[in-house]
Simulated assay, not measured.
Amino acid sequence: MLPEERPDVPREAEEEETGRRAGVERRARRRRYRPVLPSIIMGNVRSLPNKMDELAALDPASAGTAELDGFYTLLRADRSKESGKRKGGGLAVLVNDRWCNPGHITVKEQLCCKDIELLAVSMRPYYLLREFTHALVVVVYIPPFANADAACDVLLSAVSRLQTQHPDALLLISGDFNHASPSSSLPKFTQYVTCHTRDNKTLDLFYANTKEAYHSLPLPPLGRADHNLVHLLPVYKTLVHRQPAVTRTVKKWSEEAEEALKDCFNTTLWDVFSDAHGEDIDSLTHCLTDYINFCVENTVPTRTVHGASPTASPGLPRTLRLSGSPEGEEESFCVWK
């Protein structure tokens, strides 16, 4: 490799730029016009091969091309014989590569039976709020002839397993539920589809485990499909903006403050404490602790800090943002059934 050549390093693996001031609010201002949650297009399209041109036209990044390679990562759950149908069908999730690296996408669960078809996918995107460890997407199809109660039980079991394994994840459930309504089985989830998806009925539903997260807009059907598409736009307000700012007083430690505190301790007659309390260890410990705190209060300067509440930026041991994430993302991922 010549000296002037630069190695081919993935953008998400590059080191984060230095020289920027830290802080949750500053990071939020830098991403002011970017959605904090993924934007989603969902719908029952009946078949995909004959609709690839229209599908590509939904995203300006891939408009004018008949293929989606290089723009989306496709995850499929083809229909099996256990479904009771002879041909066709299945679930598919298209993930925008601008939103999540293909190497950070994992299929967590896949199920196909006569009552329900289910595909659960785990994603660790380039950027996600500190409130969530990662994103879990569950795609569901419940046939019209299925047992609604049995299908909801299977869905509830799968969601419960995912929540037990990943309690802090953003969990999204999308699907064509037909006559089944899992709202009673998922009391802690919010349903966001408010428009009709087939004639005057709302068969396609979308659930999330957080409130006030999305706003739904109807889109025309894809090709000759009998279901309208639904565009889920993120309207989520981050925790740091929902909670009021707080004012805290912190110690301003420095080498000068440490030296002054050492001088204070060196000039202290420690025998006075032991003589006054004798063999009472508990009383001696409390007295020494109060004296040390008194010295710190009078020696180390303090300053007032005005910022976000500690609960708005939990100190969880995780890294959710990789530097070098692509700019100007469109639909983060699309769900098709």
Rank of each mutant, 00 (worst) to 15 (best):
E4H: 08
E5R: 09
R6F: 04
D8S: 11
P10L: 08
E12F: 04
E14K: 08
E17V: 03
G23N: 03
G23L: 02
R29M: 15
R29E: 15
L37D: 05
P38A: 14
S39V: 11
P49R: 15
N50L: 14
D53M: 09
L55C: 12
A63L: 06
T65A: 07
A66G: 13
E67P: 00
T73I: 02
L74Q: 14
R76T: 12
R76S: 10
D78K: 10
D78T: 11
G84S: 05
G88H: 10
G89T: 05
V93C: 07
D97E: 15
P102R: 09
P102N: 06
H104K: 12
I105S: 02
K108H: 09
K114H: 08
S122N: 05
Y127V: 15
T133E: 11
H134A: 08
V137C: 12
V140F: 01
V140T: 05
C152G: 00
H166S: 12
P167Q: 07
A169M: 02
L172S: 00
L172C: 02
S181F: 07
S181G: 03
Q191Y: 05
C195Y: 02
H196A: 08
T197L: 08
F206G: 00
E212V: 00
A213F: 05
Y214P: 01
S216D: 10
L217H: 10
P221I: 01
G223N: 02
A225E: 03
L229M: 11
L229R: 00
L229F: 02
H231C: 01
P234I: 01
V240A: 15
R242C: 05
R242K: 09
R242S: 07
Q243K: 13
A245K: 12
V250Y: 08
K251Y: 14
K251M: 10
K251Q: 14
E255Y: 06
E258I: 13
E259A: 14
L261V: 10
L261C: 09
D263S: 03
T267N: 13
T268M: 11
D271W: 09
D275R: 15
H277Q: 06
H277W: 05
D280T: 04
D282I: 06
H286R: 12
L288M: 14
T289I: 12
C295R: 09
V296P: 00
N298E: 10
T302D: 03
R303L: 14
T304Y: 02
V305Q: 10
H306R: 15
H306L: 11
T311V: 11
S313T: 13
P314C: 07
S323A: 15
E330T: 12
E330M: 07
E331S: 14
E331W: 13
F333D: 03
C334Y: 02
